[in-house]
Computed example of a mutant assay.
Amino acid sequence: MDERKMARIDLAVPFGQKDEAKALGAKWDPVLNVWYAPEDVDLIPLLRWLPDSDTVELEHAPEYQVRAPYYYIIESTSDCWKCSTWTRVYTFMLPEGHEKFELVDDDEEFSLERNLGEWIRHDHRGTAGTVHSLSPSVAAQVRRYTANLKQAFSKTAGHRYIMNHCEHCGTKLGDFYMHSEPGGAFFPTSPQQASKMTLIKINERFDANCGVGFVTDDFFDCMQRDKTRSV
């Protein structure tokens, strides 16, 4: 999705949500005592904090910008860079037909008064990465399988997101290697590697703010199915 540049926009961020807003690119103005969206930041993740007005149609800005009718929790393994021990790691796979909310691009100058968007359907499977927030129901499902997928600050990314932690020493394990490097925990390059990954199907709606990546051959059919833990 292309970023839309615009003048600074002040935000109405509750104190309890300031860390999440900061992770999504919001800045604090110590003079005016207000959070704001800088002109070079992607506005969509911050739309929920736009102040109420007669011209801003907040109904076009859903709380979660990625959705699917069901999803899979992927269980894989990765070596911990700190203690050199293999640890279980988790992420989400979304089915064909998952949707992402995007601003309408009609070749006109973007303005807050329009604030229009649409759900774009993607007819391929995708793996969720850089997850900023999960709906309560998805978060509850994750907690059934692991307590080591949780919010943390990434120096590499420069912001907070929900990342894996080593189940042995608690070290943060960032998304980049596992999601973006061929052979990483969630980027299998062969049927043999995919066969070591387990899919747990969750027959509930998926809602989150995250990125979704995909590859031409994800070896989906080679992954194990754990029907005993499926919901």
Rank of each mutant, 00 (worst) to 15 (best):
D107H: 00
Y64Q: 08
L24V: 09
F176K: 12
C210H: 06
I73A: 09
V212W: 00
S180I: 07
D79M: 11
D29W: 15
D123T: 15
S154G: 08
E109S: 04
A140W: 04
P14W: 09
S133R: 12
V31Q: 15
H165I: 06
G184S: 04
E118S: 03
K22V: 12
R205C: 14
L43T: 06
G174L: 02
I73C: 13
G174K: 01
S53R: 02
T146I: 03
V215C: 02
R8S: 00
P188R: 05
E102I: 12
L11M: 06
T130Y: 09
D42M: 04
M178W: 03
M197F: 05
H168P: 09
L50Q: 04
F153A: 01
F187R: 03
Y90A: 13
V104C: 02
V131T: 15
W28G: 07
D218A: 14
R8P: 00
D207W: 11
D226K: 04
A61W: 07
F92Q: 11
E113W: 07
E63I: 12
K150M: 09
L134Y: 07
N203I: 11
G126P: 09
V56T: 11
S154Y: 08
C169H: 01
A23L: 15
S76I: 04
R125P: 11
F153Y: 12
D40V: 05
S195E: 00
P14V: 07
F206M: 05
A23C: 15
E59N: 01
A185D: 03
R160N: 06
K18T: 15
K150H: 10
L24R: 12
K227L: 13
V138M: 06
F110H: 03
E59M: 00
R160G: 02
D42W: 06
E57Y: 03
V56L: 04
L103P: 02
A208M: 03
E167C: 11
F92H: 10
F220Y: 01
H132M: 08
E3N: 07
M163Q: 11
R114W: 00
M223S: 06
V34Q: 08
Y70R: 08
A26K: 05
G184Q: 02
T156V: 02
T127F: 14
P62T: 00
M93D: 10
